[in-house]
Amino acid sequence: MSLDILYFAWVRERIGLPRETVQTQAATVSDLVAELTAREARYEAAFQDLSALRVAVDQELTEFDAPLAGAREVAFFPPMTGG
């Protein structure tokens, strides 16, 4: 399947791009993270500590074990600092 992946804040800076489209068979967010991490060091640098990251699937906050079936967009970012 084709997935749009978005990165924000320091995750975007470490990976070096704000978004990309990937072809993947990842069943869960964790599987997708493993695929990306295996690609290049910059992904490894961004994903080294998942407890410091949050994930949204189709604009809804979720967990790293969330399934990706039917998903179109996954976003990775640090804990939010609004307000």
Partner: peptide, 25 residues
Amino acid sequence: MDYLKSRAPFWKKEVTAEGAAWVAA
């Protein structure tokens, strides 16, 4: 206010004379 701080997707970066740094939650 409590929920906007931690659940609205904003990220703050502070730029000072020393450089730029993301504000940690």
